[in-house]
Computed example of a mutant assay.
Amino acid sequence: MELHVTQHEIKDGVGLLRLNRPERGNSWTHRMNAEYKEIIESFERDPAVRVIVVTGAGRAFCVGADFRALEHHQDSKKDYIQASAELEMATPGHGIHPEFDHELIWHWGLSKPVIAAINGACAGIAVALAAFCDLRFAAAGAKITTSTARLGLPAEYGLSWILPRLIGLAPAVDILLTGRVVPAEEMHALGFLHGVLPREDFEQQVLARAREMAAAVSPIAVKTMKRQIYAEQLHLMPGAAIEKSRELTAQLLKHPDCREGVAAMKDKRVASFLPLSATQ
């Protein structure tokens, strides 16, 4: 697919995806969604990529849905859900769990960690996108808003489910029902963000963390833990989680990465872990 509204690059084990409509605040469109999925799927297949970083070009991360797209759907005679389903798109993260085969939650089906680098304004669907990433960092002073209460729309793309689980019910109700603008510093205090970093060189700071992660952790261990963490959010059975973890431990004890990790720790050196293969 020819890319018009995104950019990507791979360096030092990190796949960087940049939403690239800076003149419109990187506002979200069906085209951007298609390109986003295409790039993420390519990162997922590439053993050279161990960590994925998503950010925005210019001053904004993503200001939400493009207003022209909203107006199109308002005026269109086509059903919104049917019109969206007509578009052919890649399906990264699918086939792992039925609940993950939906918009944005498919991030949980990926085998690699995804870091949202919120470099500026983050609104609407962009808040949901970040919420379904694994780690979230924001630039100091970045403004975050779910916004839909002020547009006459519901909590979108699963925010009514994921936001209470990330920050608690009471703060999520406040943020969703008021649609107010929340500074990054408050979202960090609530637990939505893993850190707020200085705006100067923000992208490079996040990439440095991603490179460190890519170099230090076992890809097969990260893949396995992602599957554990997110699948176990869908049930209330801690005993089942313990027994599943015992099964997975038995499997990974025999994996070369475990032997290498133990040896590296004993030798006080950096481990050299294997890349993920298509068979893992």
Rank of each mutant, 00 (worst) to 15 (best):
E35W: 01
M89Y: 01
P256I: 03
S42L: 12
R150G: 06
F202I: 07
V53H: 12
E243I: 10
V127H: 07
T91L: 13
E2R: 13
N20Y: 15
I81G: 02
E186W: 09
W161D: 03
L16P: 08
E203S: 11
L151V: 07
A172R: 04
E260Y: 08
L153T: 04
E9I: 03
I39S: 02
H4E: 15
E203V: 01
R18I: 13
A214F: 01
A241N: 09
T29Q: 07
C122R: 05
L135G: 00
V114G: 00
G158K: 01
A140I: 02
R45N: 14
A60N: 13
G124M: 08
V63Y: 13
I125D: 05
F43A: 06
P113T: 04
D174Q: 15
K37D: 01
L234M: 11
V14R: 07
L104I: 02
V54W: 04
S218K: 10
A139W: 06
E247R: 15
R165M: 00
A123F: 10
K78Y: 09
P219F: 07
R227T: 04
V222W: 09
L70R: 04
R199S: 14
V182G: 10
A48N: 06
M1T: 14
P275H: 11
L159W: 06
P198D: 13
R68M: 04
K77Y: 04
A149I: 12
P256S: 08
M225E: 05
I115R: 01
P171N: 11
R136L: 07
I40C: 08
I39V: 15
V182L: 12
V222M: 03
A126L: 03
H194N: 14
G158D: 00
H97G: 10
E156G: 15
M32V: 10
A121V: 11
A250S: 14
V51A: 06
R59Q: 15
L104V: 00
E38M: 05
N33G: 05
I10F: 08
P47A: 15
F132I: 01
L276P: 04
F137P: 11
C258S: 03
Q280W: 07
G13E: 08
H97I: 09
E38Q: 14
A170Q: 04
C133H: 00
T29H: 00
L166M: 06
K244T: 15
G95I: 11
L87I: 14
K268W: 07
G58T: 13
D12W: 00
L87W: 08
E35P: 02
Y36C: 08
R21Y: 02
H94G: 13
A34H: 04
P98H: 13
G93F: 11
D101V: 10
D101N: 15
N119P: 04
R227H: 11
A184D: 12
H4S: 14
F132Q: 05
V114K: 01
K143S: 00
V49P: 07
L17H: 08
R209S: 02
I242K: 14
A170T: 03
T249A: 15
Q7N: 12
K223Y: 00
P183I: 07
E38V: 01
G15S: 05
G64N: 05
V114C: 01
E200N: 09
